[in-house]
Computed example of a mutant assay.
Amino acid sequence: MRAPLHVIVGLGSGQLATIAHPRGDGWETAELTALADTGVDVLVSALTATEQLRMGLDGVSATAAALGLEFIPFPATDGGALREEAARVIVLASRLAAHVHAGRFVATQCFGGVGRSTLLACTTLVLLGIAPGEALRRVTGGSDMPVTRDWLYEFSVHQATHLQH
């Protein structure tokens, strides 16, 4: 596998990872097979439709399904636009948290394996009960990602307020 998984530790029986886009022209069958062999059950791609088309990801869903991988396309614009797509992020992260809680291995992927995939992974961790700062530390290793950090803290405060009512 050419794009390495960044596995986030400390989640019980389930696992969560981020991964960069595949090098070359899309996910080759060998790369998807390597992901499946590693134990990945769910692969989420946060690439935009343009990025997906440019990288030849048209047949990924069928190939992934044949290998027993659930492929979830989640086209999202890189950068601050995810703030505008907050409801979609939260719905998907809730679904991913349920997968992790059930013991499945989820990998989130975007162009660089940071940014969009990091936001999805961190939001999933917050929904699993991990504080935003700790979620960021686990996913980024301490790298500064202000958009993700700000969004996560706002989301966490909103979640806490919502749970109190």
Rank of each mutant, 00 (worst) to 15 (best):
A3H: 06
V7S: 08
V7M: 08
V9C: 03
V9I: 00
G14F: 00
A17W: 14
A17G: 04
I19P: 00
I19C: 14
A20M: 10
H21F: 07
H21Q: 15
G24T: 02
D25C: 08
E28K: 13
E28C: 09
E28D: 10
T29A: 15
T29F: 08
T29Y: 08
T29N: 09
A30S: 13
L32E: 02
D37S: 09
D37I: 00
T38Q: 09
V40K: 08
V42P: 01
L43E: 04
A49F: 13
Q52K: 13
L53D: 05
L53S: 12
L53Q: 10
R54Q: 12
L57P: 11
L57E: 14
L57F: 12
D58Y: 06
G59L: 09
A62S: 15
T63Y: 00
A64Y: 08
A65N: 13
L67W: 11
G68N: 10
G68F: 13
E70Q: 15
E70K: 14
I72E: 04
I72H: 13
I72C: 14
P73E: 05
P73K: 01
P75F: 10
D78N: 14
G79W: 04
G79D: 11
G79Q: 06
G80M: 08
G80Y: 02
L82H: 06
E85K: 12
A87Q: 10
R88A: 15
V89S: 01
I90P: 00
V91Y: 03
L92H: 03
A93V: 02
A93S: 13
R95C: 03
R95T: 12
H99G: 08
G103E: 11
R104W: 00
R104K: 15
F105R: 15
A107L: 04
A107V: 04
T108C: 15
T108E: 05
Q109R: 12
F111I: 02
V114Q: 12
V114G: 01
V114R: 12
G115I: 11
G115N: 14
G115A: 13
S117K: 03
L120P: 12
C122N: 04
C122D: 03
T123W: 05
T123A: 15
L125W: 02
V126Q: 05
L128A: 05
L128S: 09
G129V: 11
G129I: 13
I130K: 08
A131I: 00
A131Y: 02
P132Q: 04
E134V: 12
E134L: 11
R137H: 13
R137G: 04
G141Q: 03
G142Q: 05
G142Y: 10
G142K: 10
D144Y: 11
M145Q: 12
M145D: 04
M145E: 11
P146G: 04
P146H: 07
P146I: 01
T148H: 06
T148P: 01
L152H: 07
E154D: 15
V157Y: 03
Q159G: 06
Q159L: 13
A160C: 03
H162E: 09
L163P: 01
L163F: 00
Q164S: 14
Q164L: 07
